[in-house]
Design a protein around this nucleic acid. Structure first.
Length: 574
RNA sequence: GCUCCCGUAGCUCAGUUGGAUAGAGCAUUGGACUACGAAUCCAAGGGUCGGGCGUUCGAAUCGCUCCGGGAGCGCCA
């Protein structure tokens, strides 16, 4: 990784430096204003309005003046009204992009800025014994992509699956098991979920039943052997099931933990809070004694029966994680619903005098709406993945029959395509926006979907196979077609998307760039249908053929690299 | 009721943190396979950026307000 692999950023920095020197103002004043331009105008634009007051001149005059002074090799600078526009000259731009991509290979887009820093990412973290519905895909897939993203940024990543394996919901399952349980289906996750749903419903209607569940959990906290034995068994069943889904998604956590991990530290944590912030009793419960906004609920550490709550366990876990990993950043990939909890939880840590609380972030995401179910039940994640695989398989068979593809393992390919559709479907939008669940949309392989990226990647691979692979060297100066220049610009955007993705904890930045790459390359290779001179695989030993193969290889590498970050498989045939 | 988030094409969403004529996909209509594989591409129609007021050279983006939707608001996680 050379420090200047981000070609786009290099040009931008040079443009800024030249403008600052020409206008005799601090670089920061210019840097704020320089944007990527509409392709019709160029690659970079600087609106001169902000200098008008300082220089006491009209913006168009400033732009004209600056344009005359700014000289950067490889950058064509043109004044246009109040704007100073700049366009990358075909050379050296083309050569720099192609060289950078091929030097980095499948690590294209990566950087080393996080070197020596550690991020802890709490993601997926399902609640054991609660329904594992489709919406769990969000924390899992976003967290996984973030883990990959930070690794691509040079960070040390400690991914933690922090199971919700402690709390009243276990009491509900245990008590409910007596009434609704089927011993023959004892080891089935789906059965546990059924029991939970029924017990939860009953508890909502009957306070006495809820009380029984609470009492069971209290027994767990007191170390009751029989209660813990049942808990251990249910936990085991759930973890086993989760493992299958994670394997399918290609996810491996550095740490598999759970709230139960901290049960024996509750007293010490509460004692520390008592010493630093203060605690007090309220309606029989133990709460953190600090100012609360009107209408804001207090942070509860213990219920009136003495058992603990998740806030208490989260506090213990946070301190433990900092002690273990000395993190520079800690992410909690959890739905927006829990915003209040995290705000309070971080506030308590700050009041306890923990500076690391400043580096903790609630990476929130929106809800999944409209989960209209087929049989009136929750939509399970595995159901969606199965359905996606089934639909992809139809398409694979169809294409194989038509002679378009040859694969010796249609099932595996279908699984990859189905997975790509579901995973990418979740990651392509900003994580904070709500998610509209729609079978047709989630399972779609047409348009700008996961399959689109995979297809484009497979096509690039196909062209390379037919063309005898990527050449050792070629002349990038020959890549003068507008279609080729558009592809190059898309490729050059990946490093910026990775950096921005880390800054915003937002995988969709990478997803968007990949769509741009695929769209630009798709336009390019279908242009060859109409106009044979635009094809990659020209006859003979044409230098242009070499240059285009090299470009195709760069596309292939960019898609592979980006898809890997998103956790989407990239098959070579499709 | 209070707090926070959201409202952009018929539908699902982008919109470079205040910059030039608001963009994609789906759906609709028309077109491109004897072709580097059509899970693709091209074209067309479709917009008072929820309404109003304001801030300034400039607003989908910032502020105020109204309308509409969502979430959270003590012993669940």
């Amino acid at each position: 990784m050379t420090p200047h692999a981000d070609v786009f950023q290099d040009y931008r920095n040079q443009f800024i430096a030249a403008l600052a020197a020409a206008a005799d103002v601090p670089r920061e004043d210019i840097a704020r204003e320089v944007k990527t331009a509409d392709p019709a105008h160029g690659d970079l634009q600087f609106p001169a309005f902000s200098l008008a007051k300082k220089l006491r001149k009209a913006p168009p005059a400033i732009a004209a003046d600056l344009a005359a002074k700014v000289q950067v090799p490889g950058l064509d600078v043109i004044p246009a009204g109040p704007y100073v526009n700049a366009r990358f000259a075909v050379m050296p731009f083309s050569a720099r992009v192609v060289d950078a991509v091929r030097a980095a290979g499948t690590a294209w887009g990566h950087n080393a800025e996080g070197q020596g820093r550690t991020v802890v990412i709490d993601y997926s973290s399902p609640n054991i014994a609660k329904p594992i519905a489709f919406h769990h895909i969000r924390s899992t897939v976003i967290g996984h992509a973030l883990a990959n993203l930070y690794r691509a940024g040079g960070w040390r990543v400690e991914g933690i699956n922090y199971l919700g394996d402690w709390g009243k919901q276990f009491g509900l399952v245990a008590v409910g098991y007596g009434d609704f349980g089927d011993p023959a289906r004892r080891g089935e996750m789906a059965h546990l979920v059924e029991v939970y749903v029924k017990a939860n419903k009953k508890a909502e209607a009957d306070p006495a039943y809820d009380e029984k569940a609470r009492a069971f959990f209290k027994r767990m906290e007191e170390g009751d052997g029989e209660a813990l034995k049942l808990w251990r068994e249910f936990r085991e069943t759930s973890v086993e099931q989760f493992g299958k889904v994670y394997a399918r998604l290609g996810i491996r956590f550095e740490h598999m933990e759970g709230e139960s991990f901290y049960q024996d530290r509750m007293d010490a944590v509460i004692e520390e809070i008592r010493r630093t912030v203060g605690v007090r009793e309220s309606d029989g419960a133990l709460i953190v004694d600090m100012p609360y906004a009107e209408n804001e609920p207090p942070v509860l550490l213990k219920k009136n029966d003495g058992s603990t709550l998740y806030a208490t366990r989260d506090l213990a876990a946070a301190m433990d994680r900092h002690a273990r990993f000395h993190f520079d950043r800690a992410l909690y990939v959890v739905a927006t619903d829990q915003a209040l909890h995290f705000r309070q939880f971080f506030t308590v840590l700050k009041r306890m005098g923990k500076p690391f609380a400043e580096n903790m972030v609630h990476v929130n995401f929106g809800r999944v709406h409209g989960m209209s179910t087929r049989a009136g039940q929750v939509v399970l994640l595995t159901d969606v993945l199965d359905e996606a695989r089934a639909r992809a398989l139809e398409k694979v068979r169809e294409n194989a029959k038509a002679g378009r593809i040859h694969t010796d393992n249609p099932e595996e390919l279908a699984e990859q395509v189905g997975l790509g559709a579901v995973v990418f479907g979740d990651l392509k939008n900003k994580r904070t926006s709500d998610y509209e669940f729609d079978w047709e949309q989630v399972l779609s392989f047409e348009g700008h979907t996961g399959a689109y990226l995979q297809y484009t990647h497979a096509r690039a691979c196909s062209i390379l196979r037919k063309g005898g692979g990527a050449p050792a060297s070629a002349d990038a100066a020959l890549l003068v077609l507008p279609e080729e220049q558009a592809v190059l610009r898309a490729l050059a955007a990946l490093p910026g998307a990775v950096r921005q993705g880390i800054e915003d904890n937002e995988p969709s930045h990478v997803a968007r760039v990949l769509l741009e790459v695929a769209a630009a390359f798709s336009r390019y290779f279908t242009a060859g249908n109409q106009d044979a001179t635009k094809r990659v695989l020209l006859d003979g030993n044409d230098p242009l053929r070499h240059a285009r193969l090299m470009l195709t290889d760069a596309v292939r590498l960019t898609l592979r690299s980006g898809l890997a970050v998103l956790g989407v498989p990239a098959p070579e045939y499709m």
